[in-house]
């Protein structure tokens, strides 16, 4: 009861919303990079918000199911197919035993998520199923999936209420410059006036140094008053460090817990998905907002996700429309 990995893809890992409570001991949070797409995949299947999923990066895997289950694929478009036929995104899909789910490389975005109605059977380590590759714990033996790995399911759950309603409009990830909203600080006072202006007005490029730990940017020089070294302190998800070379680094899910470079700003939680779905050479800009504005955006997104959850938790319109059902039945029998 589970799936076998026929091809592993570039870096396919098991993630949930992360491992909190152990950062004071040097253990990174890990967890999904694009939290929004992650949450939508789970809500499509009526799963708990934090249920573990596959996170797929740039080149997707090929998986063969050893039992039936229901899946949902969200995030970037990796042209997924089931037994060679295109599989819809942002939709609950029934898969049978022996079905082959195949992903190509990312056509849009750079990461996609797969949720399972029968829940992935990997142990909870320190409160989370997320893969922590550095300390080789959590997820599937603390590492990305490899060829011939077998990941089991925890439960048999092959029925979902309102199955036919469980689809949403896929999110678009395009290649035009994205503006990331940031809350300035905590070490803003270490930067020159010009450095701050450059940061908020310049256009930056995503480099190939972009992984689960962080994203290095190229662009205009962001100058500090007196170097960038601080006494090491804690690093939040989305914090923008600027080392003395003047190029920002945005710290992501597998970031180290503490660091010694000044942080000019932190990306608003709701805008981190926009960043992590970028590819090398894509452009980004920064725009400052207040912490109150960033928190209001966060609350708005939670409300929006709750509305999405409700919108698919209703009988399918076609089923309610008697004439439509009658027409379809006629078609079937005539």
């Amino acid at each position: 009861m589970g799936f076998r990995v026929l091809k592993p893809g570039m870096q396919t890992t098991i993630q949930d919303l992360g491992r909190y409570g152990y950062q004071s001991q040097g253990i990174s949070v890990s967890g999904a990079m694009d939290v929004r797409s992650f949450k939508i995949a789970n809500l499509l299947l009526d799963n708990p918000e934090n249920e573990a999923e596959l996170e797929i990066c740039l080149i997707g895997p090929t998986l063969k199911f050893t039992s039936a289950t229901i899946i949902a694929i969200t995030g970037g478009d990796f042209s997924p197919t089931i037994n060679g036929k295109p599989a819809p995104l942002y939709t609950a899909i029934y898969v049978e035993k022996d079905d082959v789910l195949k992903f190509a490389s990312a056509r849009t975005g750079s990461r996609c998520y797969v949720a399972f109605s029968s829940y992935l059977d990997v142990p909870v380590v320190m409160g989370s199923r997320s893969t922590n590759m550095k300390s080789k714990t959590g997820g599937y033996h603390g590492r990305p999936l490899r060829e011939d790995d077998y990941v089991g399911f925890r439960i048999k759950r092959r029925y979902l209420p309102f199955f036919l309603s469980r689809h949403l409009e896929p999110q678009k990830f395009d290649e035009t410059a994205e503006t990331l909203r940031v809350v300035m600080g905590p070490q803003t006072d270490m930067f020159t006036r010009q450095g701050l202006d450059t940061f908020l007005s310049g256009e930056f490029t995503v480099t190939s140094d972009f992984d689960r730990m962080g994203c290095r940017l190229d662009g205009p020089f962001v100058s500090t008053k007196n170097g960038s070294d601080i006494i090491s302190d804690g690093i939040a998800f989305g914090a923008v460090q600027v080392p003395s070379h003047g190029k920002p680094i945005i710290m992501l899910s597998d970031r180290q817990t503490t660091g010694g470079y000044a942080k000019i700003a932190t990306v608003a939680s709701v805008d981190i998905p926009k960043l992590v779905q970028r590819k090398t050479d894509h452009k980004i800009r920064f725009e400052a907002i207040t912490v109150e504005e960033a928190q209001a955006l966060y609350l708005k997104e939670i409300t929006e996700l709750e509305e999405l959850r409700k919108s698919i938790h209703v009988p399918c319109k076609e089923v309610l429309d008697c004439r439509l059902v009658a027409k379809r039945l006629t078609k079937l029998f005539v």
């Binding site: 409570g21 302190d233 804690g234 109150e292 966060y298």
Partner: peptide
């Protein structure tokens, strides 16, 4: 409050703004 990261001379507090606001 979801996590605390003490360091040499600072303390970072991670919190959930859905439960508690900055102010």
């Amino acid at each position: 409050v979801i996590d605390l990261i003490p360091s040499y001379a600072a303390l970072l507090i991670n919190y959930n703004p859905q439960v508690i606001s900055f102010s």
